[in-house]
Computed example of a mutant assay.
Amino acid sequence: MTVTIFGSAIADLVFRLERLPRPGETLLGTAGAPLAGGKGLNQAIAAARDGADVRFVGCVGRDEHGDLLRMALIGAGVNVTGLRGEDAPSGLACVCVDATGQNQIAVSPGANLLARAAQLPELRDDTILLMQMEVPPEENARAITRARQAGARVLLNLAPAAAMDRAALGGVELLIVNESEAAWLGQQLGRAGEAAALHAALGIGVAVTRGGEGASVATAAGSFEVPAFTVEVVDSTGAGDAWCGVLAAALHLGMPLELAVRRANAAGALACTKPGAAPAMPDSAAIDALMGLD
């Protein structure tokens, strides 16, 4: 069984500030060298560090940022045969992080907009396909169609929140959203932004991640809540990506959904204890220790 990530790879420029800027305001802070990031890349690294066999499919530029992103994936043991170089700038993000670990992020997708579902290798019934919304939504829709035809399991992280073809959404096994994305989706559907309400409206499994409040899940088999793990937050950037990647890895390793969500909660918490996105993705030993499994 393989976890295949179809998604984004983005170089992060991280600015550390005492507080986040208000509209029209300039603040002084500190910044370091670019770090590997992007929702797809972060999730791929998180899944690989938790023991999954991971393939990454996407696009980067033929530039120094593209080299950084490719090497970060390779260093984590991710198969990058589906990572294509393009004559376009690599994706770039400006990440502002305040003293409490909260963040604001602006993204220039760059080469990620050239990612195509046709790049995906053969998908099988033992494949888990995990996607996000930093590549063209219509390509995600095509990828979902291919996956369902092959009998693969499909997980979609609707982040950042954007419209998706409703017919394609019907092929998703589990839709993953945070609270703000859930509220946005609920508005579009005329429903409350809660897991059970979104599940009822869409007819697919829905997981809502709620930070320090844990996660809520609603599927055809029923609804449940999984509490969060308490940690000291340094930087919340990438916490949701750790959650998604480790959930995919846990399902890949055969865990039931509720246990997989608990493991994902542990991974998301651990990602908050270190600065950066991809560098903060935890390994299986750290996750086991937080869960009391070591």
Rank of each mutant, 00 (worst) to 15 (best):
T4W: 05
I5R: 03
F6R: 06
F6Q: 06
G7K: 00
S8E: 06
A9W: 03
L13H: 15
L13V: 14
F15P: 00
R19K: 12
L20N: 10
R22M: 14
E25C: 10
E25Q: 12
E25I: 11
T26W: 13
L27F: 14
A31G: 14
G32A: 09
A33Q: 14
G38A: 05
K39E: 07
K39L: 06
K39C: 05
A44I: 03
I45K: 00
D50C: 15
F56G: 00
V57N: 02
G58V: 04
V60M: 00
V60I: 14
G66C: 05
G66R: 02
L68M: 12
L69W: 03
R70G: 04
M71L: 15
A72R: 01
I74K: 14
V78R: 00
G85K: 09
L92W: 12
V95T: 05
V95P: 01
A99I: 10
A99S: 15
G101T: 07
Q102M: 13
V107N: 08
S108Q: 11
P109Q: 06
G110W: 02
N112Y: 06
N112H: 12
L113I: 08
L114G: 09
A115T: 10
A115W: 02
A118Y: 08
L120I: 08
P121W: 07
E122N: 12
D126P: 11
D126Q: 15
T127P: 03
L130V: 13
M131Y: 12
Q132I: 05
Q132T: 13
E134H: 13
E134P: 07
A141W: 02
R148M: 09
V154Q: 04
L158R: 08
P160N: 13
A167M: 13
E173D: 15
V177D: 02
N178Q: 10
A182C: 11
W184D: 07
Q188C: 13
G190E: 12
R191N: 11
R191H: 09
A192C: 09
A196G: 09
V206I: 11
V208Q: 01
R210A: 14
G211L: 03
E213M: 10
G214M: 05
T219A: 05
A221D: 15
G222T: 08
G222R: 05
G222Q: 07
A228Y: 04
T230N: 13
V233T: 14
T237I: 07
T237A: 05
G240P: 05
G240V: 03
C244H: 02
V246I: 07
L247S: 02
L247W: 00
A248F: 03
A248P: 04
L251W: 02
E258R: 08
L259W: 07
R262V: 00
A266I: 02
A278H: 07
P279W: 11
A285P: 07
A286F: 07
D288R: 08
A289G: 06
L290W: 04
